[in-house]
Design a protein around this nucleic acid. Structure first.
Lengths: 344, 344
DNA sequence: CTGAAAGCGCTTACAG
DNA sequence: CTGAAAGCGCTTACAG
């Protein structure tokens, strides 16, 4: 009995499955990969034999021969940020559907850690990498990836070239700013976006250009993407300050909400507030957050598919997708109060 | 030039590094793994040669021979939950430090998806799996993992046996409940914890036993771990209801806060509120959340190390660690108001 | 330290 | 469909 158990522990190989099914090794190998050259009956017989023996396909052995590991390396700049957590979920889901496994590395915005993890991923022979670049990443990263012959795509934050999927930050912020202008605001400030990257730049430009077009001047209250810092900043805002805040993203808007409530001010009534991203919490926020919807999960799925295209068709030029944002008008901007007034 | 580039694209193997360094293949192989039998000089010469050629170590080939892939499969029940996102960050960090790469799968609380991803992980020859079991996972999962000879550990949610790291839920909820009793509350209700798993059970018991010991009856308002649902539930709470709410976790407490604020009630002043977990947002919440601190990141790190122990010492019995929680007294419980009164 | 050799479990091309 | 064989890039044990 003990010996039988020991025998069961030995690794089952294709050779063993072939013997059990009464076919040749090459036939079993084809059957396990559902090759259409084989009869259904044969395939079924082999699959049954594999199940009986508890056979587990060895992808690392297959990798050695075929050069495909069916793994993708994912570099997340900060997974504790709910936006990137949802994005990660979208990526993993799409990769899984395509038969790929996701290797995860959270770089915590460290370019050094990012570099080390890329090295790890190369050693693991990933078929490609999906990158949300850490703040401060050199644009030459793309050239290195090319030199390494490593299929790649950037997500949300990107560079001048290379496959990419991300929201149209400029358009998104334009929508939010125009909405506040339509509600009659003239002193609209930009809260957050202290980091220097393509996302901050795009969002700031969307705001600044819209203000310029309206003949109004800009105001910037830079802060990290951090609930606490945004809350502090808003508490120190002068009473005679802006009447509306376009926030860099939803987390900053959450912080602003808490800071305002602490002062006895209600977003939407005493001051208008908009976010960016539309993460899960935003719709059930108090007050429900008016924000620019970019669907982190959807962005992750699109990015994953763009990378898979790179892997499967290396010859075609890399796709760059700008996802069109939409404005979700809820209560933090105060639009519902205007509507009520109009109705009354 | 074009030809030179083409040549540079060919895979560099240990054999090539050995030739470049002017040593034997076996020497180069040892040098690349920093074997102490070699002289520093030789090791350096080989490393330099490897760098010159752009050599990348092939772990999947090494895996085939040595049986170690240096990868760990991580099954996360819901990565968009900030508690589990932070936990994931802790796990990935600890595994990276130990030289392991993390394979990620987000099961979204689906036991079926969990099973499929385990299959994937086995095919990828992971050295072990770290599991935050999806709700509804059969306890027999542990037996299967044993039968597969797959080193494993559970995190937060666990079973009767097997390596495990998680908070002491019973003690944690006892601390929160006792604190509210000390503040004079008699009608304390439990909010959340609708799911059936070891975590809900433990937290409920910690609350219920403490109430029983004080001769008080329990009240349960079950809801999913969801800001929106908790906010709704709290809005419908009768005025003559409980004066304090112990929440299943911080997210539920956040939802409760928003629901109360919407009614014009302030947590800490009009009703006492406690959370569980102490995720990043809790300290900067409005009002700052009194909660049971379990450090998701630290829990992840401990769990990772327990799993690595299983891998390195399969003979020793699996470790089961209950992490001691501490009560973080902030403002949502109203304790600061009592203190002020006492001082005045 | 050298050098030749076997083997991990697949894939793949080939003659039958 | 069969059956034998080569090869992916390592590790590892061994005689020198």
């Amino acid at each position: 009995m003990a010996e039988k158990q020991f025998q069961a522990m030995q690794r089952v190989r294709i050779k063993d499955v072939a013997r059990e099914a009464g076919v040749a090794l090459s036939t079993a190998a084809l059957a396990l990969r559902d090759d259409s050259r084989l009869r259904d009956e044969t395939r079924r017989a082999v699959r049954d034999a594999a199940a009986r023996l508890g056979y587990v396909y060895d992808r690392s052995a297959a990798m050695m021969r075929s050069g495909r590991s069916h793994t993708i390396g994912l570099l997340v700049c900060e997974i504790t940020n709910p936006f990137y957590a949802e994005l990660t979920a979208g990526v993993e889901e799409a990769l899984d559907e395509a038969g790929y496994v996701t290797l995860l590395a959270n770089t915590s915005e460290s370019a050094i850690r990012q570099r080390r993890m890329l090295e790890r991923f190369r050693e693991q022979s990933v078929d490609g990498v999906l990158i949300m670049p850490a703040t401060g990443t050199s644009p030459s990263l793309i050239d290195e990836l090319e030199a390494w012959q490593l299929p790649h795509a950037t997500v949300v934050r990107g560079f001048r070239k290379g496959a990419h999927a991300g929201p149209d930050n400029r358009t998104g912020m334009r929508l939010a700013t125009e909405h506040l202008l339509r509600l009659g605001h003239r002193r609209i400030a930009f809260l957050g976006g202290a980091a220097k990257n393509s996302v901050s730049t795009g969002r700031w430009e969307g705001y600044a250009r819209t203000m310029a077009k309206a003949g109004l001047s800009t105001e910037h209250f830079p802060c990290q993407t951090d609930i606490g810092e945004a809350a502090m900043l808003v508490q120190d805002l002068p009473r005679s300050g802006p009447t509306a805040l376009v926030c860099f993203n939803d987390s900053v808007a959450f912080g602003a909400t808490l800071g305002l409530l602490r002062r006895g001010l209600t977003p939407g009534r005493d001051i208008a507030l908009t976010g960016f991203d539309d993460i899960q919490e935003s719709a059930v926020w108090f007050p429900p957050l008016t924000t620019v919807r970019v669907s982190p999960r959807g962005t992750g799925q699109v990015a994953a598919n763009i990378l898979l295209e790179r892997i499967n068709n290396p010859q075609t030029p890399p796709r760059r997708v700008m996802l069109e944002p939409t404005l979700m008008i809820r209560e933090s901007c105060g639009a519902h109060l205007r509507a009520e007034v109009r109705t009354a």
